[in-house]
Amino acid sequence: MLINADFSLAAARAPEDYQWVNSPQNGVERVMLDRVGEEKARATSIVRYAPDSYFPPHLHPGGEEILVLSGTFSADDKDYPAGWYLRNPPKSGHKPYSREGAVIFVKLWQMSEDEDQQVAIDTQNKANWQPQGERQVCPLFSNDNEQVSLQRLNADKALFTTEIIGGAELLVTEGELIDAGQIYKRGSWIRLPVGAFPKLNAGAKGVTFYLKTGHLAQIESLDSKNF
């Protein structure tokens, strides 16, 4: 299965265009944003857990990255309400579930094999935020391959002021982003290729967004036989 699998091209999905499909587990649905492979895949998705739904215990050979968007996501008897960022390195495993229901942003099989850092950050905690110029930033993860953060930008401010060297991926979590009249509301996902220089600006009430940069420079070629 190939969905937005040409990483040299920009891709986007607005919440009004979500197409929910059932996962192999009852009560769990997902929106496939990009994907290379079948059930075992390099994948970026929005995943929705119905109340009292779960996945059996399983491993993630290529690692897993999660941002909890709403509700409460749980794993191995630990609860993570909306705003938590989780990063489970390659070969780690867990038993995920949700008692009340949850929506999460998930990236699978997108970490280097030598990554061994487990991360759990509450982005709702003000102590995890810091000013950087005209924006507020909550650092989430950084290594030689990628930089991940949650950022807040005031109204009408430009998101990027230079070319994106290693590509970028965004998910709007509050407010709006605007690009030449195109409005990206909460829940909008955008992937920008290496070398792009988009004219994205915060909307009239500002914007909060997940941002990953650098990672697309590592992708030279992907096809379904890799997974």
Rank of each mutant, 00 (worst) to 15 (best):
G167A: 02
E174Q: 15
F105R: 09
G167N: 04
S92C: 12
L170M: 15
Y210H: 15
V119N: 01
I66D: 04
V194R: 06
W189A: 03
V31W: 12
D77E: 15
I178K: 14
T72Q: 08
K205H: 15
V172P: 05
I178S: 05
L216P: 07
L150C: 09
A202M: 11
G166F: 03
E146V: 10
H60M: 06
Q118K: 13
D114K: 10
K91A: 14
L9S: 13
G203V: 11
E38Y: 13
D144M: 03
I66G: 03
I190L: 12
I3F: 10
A120Y: 09
V68T: 08
S224D: 10
Q132E: 13
K107W: 03
V47G: 02
A75S: 13
L153D: 00
L33H: 15
A120P: 08
Q130P: 00
I66T: 09
G214Y: 12
N201G: 04
A43F: 03
V68M: 14
A12S: 15
E38T: 02
Y18K: 01
T72S: 13
G63L: 04
E176R: 07
E113L: 11
I164L: 15
D122C: 09
E163L: 13
S142Y: 00
K78S: 11
I46H: 07
L153M: 13
N201Y: 07
L177Q: 13
T213N: 01
N154V: 07
H60D: 09
L140V: 01
P56M: 14
L9H: 13
A168I: 07
N4H: 13
E176K: 11
A102E: 05
F209P: 02
G27E: 02
L216K: 05
G133T: 10
M111H: 02
L108M: 04
R191T: 06
P24T: 08
N4Q: 11
S74R: 14
G27F: 01
H215S: 06
I46W: 06
G62N: 07
G62V: 04
G101H: 08
N143M: 05
S74V: 02
A14D: 09
Q25E: 14
A11R: 05
D6R: 11
P89E: 03
S92R: 01
E220M: 12
S149P: 03
P24L: 01
R186D: 00
V106Y: 04
M1C: 01
W84I: 06
K185V: 10
N201P: 00
P61Y: 12
Y210N: 00
A204V: 06
K107A: 11
M111G: 01
A43N: 03
E134R: 09
D77I: 03
L9R: 14
G203E: 05
F55V: 00
N143V: 03
R30G: 07
E163Y: 00
H215W: 05
A12M: 14
P51D: 08
L86G: 02
E163I: 14
E169T: 04
L86H: 13
L170C: 07
